[in-house]
């Protein structure tokens, strides 16, 4: 037997050649890699190491949210234009949110849609107390109010996000009551929720 060992046969792509199913996975990962680059373009996810101690405390103060159905009102402001809309809202634990806009147009925005994932993930991160996600992407300011209410201010950390998203403000108690998204190109989006009535 030559000194190379039969193990060498498996190396340098040998496996890929004899097990094409694996190619599928590899290529798919490559595909996802390319998609991710573009996802970055659209959603501007950043990663920066931050202090975790404070944000852990914040997460401990946030309530664990349960699935809930609400109504919502939305006001979008950009320039001098103000657009009002509203409809039904649903929070599904561990999955995300569904907005059913009823006026002035009818449309449904689900958590599974690729274009909605970023904001949905932020809401999910807050409801699941996923402080690692938040601390990676935002400077977080938390204020505990009387009667179990709280305010959370998220400010993007790196310039890539800052170029497109100014801040996210969230107010809630056992549920999220209000979200204000200040974006660079989208103007301001103010959404308020009325739940359980």
């Amino acid at each position: 037997m030559p000194p190379y060992g039969l193990g060498s046969l498996r190396s340098h792509g040998a496996y890929a050649k004899i097990r094409p199913r694996n190619d599928v996975n590899l290529i798919l990962r490559y595909n996802i890699f390319v998609k991710k680059i573009l996802l970055f373009l659209v959603f501007f996810i950043g990663t920066i190491v931050v202090k975790a101690a404070a944000i852990k405390d914040i997460a401990n103060n946030l309530p664990q949210m349960k699935s809930v159905s609400c109504t919502f009102k939305q006001q979008k402001t950009f320039g001098n234009t103000v657009l009002n809309s509203g409809g039904d809202f649903q929070f599904i634990e561990n999955k995300g949110v569904v907005f059913k806009t009823k006026y002035p147009i009818q449309s449904t925005t689900t958590y599974s849609s690729a274009s909605n994932k970023q904001i949905n993930e932020i809401i999910l991160a807050i409801s699941n107390k996923n402080y690692s996600y938040l601390e990676k992407n935002f400077d977080v300011s938390f204020e505990k109010l009387s009667g179990g209410s709280w305010n959370l201010d998220l400010t993007p950390k790196n310039s890539a996000i800052k170029a497109h998203l100014k801040s996210i403000f969230i107010n809630g108690d056992s549920n999220i009551k209000r979200i204000v998204i200040n974006s660079v190109n989208n103007g301001k989006t103010d959404i308020s929720f009325v739940c359980g009535k």
Binding site: V42, F78, S85, I119, H164
Partner: peptide, 21 residues
């Protein structure tokens, strides 16, 4: 135009360019 309105009113939508642009 209808689909662009849906994007406009979508609460979770982030736009790459402003509506003016």
């Amino acid at each position: 135009k209808n689909q662009s309105l849906q994007k406009l009113y979508n609460p979770l939508q982030i736009l790459v360019l402003s509506p003016q642009e």
